[in-house]
Design a protein around this nucleic acid. Structure first.
Lengths: 212, 212
DNA sequence: GCGTAACCCTACGCACGAGTAGGTATGCTC
DNA sequence: GAGCATACCTACTCGTGCGTAGGGTTACGC
């Protein structure tokens, strides 16, 4: 009794991508814990054991999402890189690529940053990625500084870079919550905050607390 | 058979505070979902039904934590307010109070911002608080701008304020993860990023994307 | 000293969701 | 067209953790 199967059989690689798509969607909507494997499987149009067979446990699945979205993001940014441009130009291109990515993959961003932040097992994964970003930014600042024959303590540099990355993430959240906002314009605004401030710092201007 | 009770009976108000202390601690360590009412009860040195009797369901308990910690934070910042000082001085005092609070209540901060961000039911609570902060910062910038006879579109102002708040939150996370770091010094660093950048903006200097 | 209200407990019901056992169908290779 | 790997399913087990039922004990007012 050859009943025609409701939906076609597909090669593993394809199904895996569908599952990851569904997982990113559900994780971003519900958060890691509240998301259920059943819902992810249903959303992918497949049964639960298939998900386990291909992508493993819930944690492994989540890590796979983190990996795919993270790699995509890093590639988007790296694609805009041009090592020998002046610092502001590099920063601008990086920001534009970054906000462009977030604008195009809003739930990828949500799962990557919003969800992974709190949950213990994945905080590390995320921290690594952020650390890489912070290093890049700090490296850029350091490079620009040396070009001016100036120097700042490494710790200060790191903290400033951390603040800039934080501001950028924050605007990314804002962007993700405002579907009609323009990524390009958001990048420009970030540039205003980051670069005008950084430029001052690079020229040796620093703010000191008043002695009260 | 009057067995001396292992621990004293205490009035409701006291127990409620103990429970909230325990809840904040556990929520910040585990995250909302992974935290169990049993662990919170045990940590508070009380049995689970008492928690339900006094603070209600898990969600209600979490909201209660959010409320207490949020109020404390707002009070800490409000206590440093002095409406008629120049903008940079106000910003400095606000930042100092804020980082001082985070330094002193690290897990209060964690539960407030790190956990509430992802989970749907509480995102609203947090968004409200952040919106208040953003308004304050934006209002300050706007005030300073008008004093110079200048003006910026409200949306731009809001986004800049959003970025500054994001950078500040990010440094707060950094502070929470570095127990030996000095809140005061962190505030100074934030001031360097925020104020030097904001000062430029206030003087009408803006960055524009290159025409490529 | 006695009632009553506030404080506090042990021990459960029950739902939900992770992960699996065990089997069926389909297409590909030789 | 037989054999075999791959794609796929239904239908469970079992742990975990929320929320509660149904009590016991201490203090306090009168």
């Amino acid at each position: 009794m050859s009943t025609v199967p409701a939906f076609k059989r597909l090669p593993r690689a394809v199904r895996e991508q569908q599952m990851l798509d569904a997982a990113v969607k559900v994780f971003s909507r519900r958060g890691f814990h509240a998301a259920s494997m059943d819902e992810i499987a249903e959303d992918a149009g497949i049964s639960k054991p298939m998900v386990y067979a291909y992508l493993g446990t819930k944690e492994e699945l989540f890590v796979a999402c983190l990996h795919r979205e993270g790699t995509r993001m890093m590639q988007a940014i790296a694609g805009a890189a041009a090592p020998d441009l002046p610092a502001d130009e590099r920063l601008w291109r990086g920001l534009r690529a970054f906000f462009g990515f977030v604008g195009a993959h809003r739930d990828g961003w949500a799962v990557l940053y919003r969800q992974a932040r709190g949950e213990q097992p994945f905080a590390g994964e995320l921290a690594t990625m952020r650390a890489r970003l912070v290093d890049v930014v700090a490296g850029m600042l350091d490079h620009a500084l040396r070009a001016e024959g100036r120097e700042i303590a490494a710790l200060d540099l790191e903290v400033v870079a951390y603040a800039l990355v934080g501001a950028t993430e924050s605007l990314a959240d804002w962007l993700a919550d405002h579907p009609d906002a323009d990524p390009e314009k958001t990048a420009t605004r970030m540039m205003n905050v980051a670069w005008l401030g950084a430029a001052q710092l690079l020229h040796g201007v620093t703010w000191r607390p008043p002695v009260d």
